[in-house]
Write a protein that binds this DNA or RNA. Structure first.
Lengths: 204, 204
DNA sequence: CATTTTTCCGACCGACGGTCAACATGCAAA
DNA sequence: TTTGCATGTTGACCGTCGGTCGGAAAAATG
């Protein structure tokens, strides 16, 4: 029931369409046509259109997730360095999907909202345990002073994903950097680290 | 061209339907029927279905926004007290709209995602200037030590709205309180305030 | 080869968002 | 009163969509 190749063929088609036309909504027939199969076949591999989107988002996050899982275990590297690597992996992966810039919001904004919401959810939920683990190790090492590693991880992930997405709260590049900079400062003071020690977060 | 009463009549209908059936998507015909008018009339007052949602969300945020604007000017009250009042106003307003709890996610999650995204956007965008102003006054008074009031305001609003919504990153009540508690601790340390001084944020 | 299972399909369905020409209503000018 | 125009109001209608389904095609099984 799960021909992996065909599934990926469908996901490739959707991704290709999303890159081509940034804003408009995508119909299932369109996906099928791009994939070179009949519309009925799409529903042989996926139960619904939403499921296709979900699968595509999940697939796009496989790589950074694996990176995160690997990083969480590499205890010989400094926690801060690992955090930097994790964020870089996220940035690369996010950037691949969020190509819009152009304005016209008129047609069917709902589908877009759905994709962005799913992204945010996936990113926070899947990366939180790994980042928590890294932070916890930093606490044990005495490099981070904070007693709620999970809360800290979630806060950081939420702010970063919302700001990096830039759809939920649209801002200029300067505003984004300003907010991230403020978050870094807040983290530095909150975790008992000297000013500038977390600057890697602001590298864009 | 803008019969305010009829517009509100339509918005009332949508709100009523949303409260009645929490999950399913709402059709324009349904809104019209609930409002007791023809479907065509709906499009006489609103250019699209999305616009109806947008207007409803905007209307629901009028009250807390006005509260925020008033609070920003009341310089005789302590900035922290004003922040507490602002958050309480937000909570009351949010709670009015986000009644779901029940599970079944199956039918048309997109419309829901759209509403929640719009809410987040509105809340952060409209409240950020007011909260920034309040924080800035706190800085001038020497009660808050932080050099980026706007970034601080945005971070707080983003984390709070995401966590209070609980759709974007679903969590248990304990997890929400844990994250908010972590944010409070981070804020206390980051703004040079003693532990426990910002506890009003955690009152649920 | 026959037969069973898996894969594939496009015509079809109900429902939706949105349009439109016709129609009602009110009201001021002739 | 009659005329004309602006403002509302309507439901039938349109194109499209997500999803279904019965059966064709292909692959696997013996």
């Amino acid at each position: 029931m799960a021909n992996q190749a065909k599934c990926n063929q469908i996901l490739d088609a959707l991704q290709k369409i999303l890159l081509r036309k940034n804003i408009q909504s995508v119909s299932v027939s369109e996906i099928a046509q791009e994939a070179g199969i009949g519309k009925g076949s799409v529903y042989y591999y996926f139960p619904s259109k939403d499921a296709i989107y979900e699968a595509l988002i999940e697939r796009n996050y496989e790589k950074p997730l694996e990176t995160a899982r690997n990083l969480a275990v590499q205890t010989e590297i400094s926690p801060f360095t690992r955090m930097a690597m994790l964020f870089q992996a996220c940035r690369n992966s996010s950037a691949e999907f969020l190509r819009e810039e152009s304005s016209s919001d008129l047609p069917s904004v709902q589908e877009k909202a759905y994709v962005h919401q799913k992204y945010l959810t996936h990113l926070v939920q899947s990366l939180k345990p790994e980042l928590t683990s890294i932070i916890r190790q930093g606490i044990e090492r005495g490099e981070i002073h904070f007693d709620r590693p999970d809360a800290l991880a979630e806060i950081v992930l939420i702010v970063l994903s919302v700001k990096l997405d830039n759809t939920l709260v649209p801002s200029s590049k300067e505003e984004i950097e300003g907010t991230i900079g403020g978050l870094v400062k807040l983290l530095e003071r909150g975790t008992g680290n000297p000013s500038g020690s977390l600057n890697f977060l602001t590298a864009f």
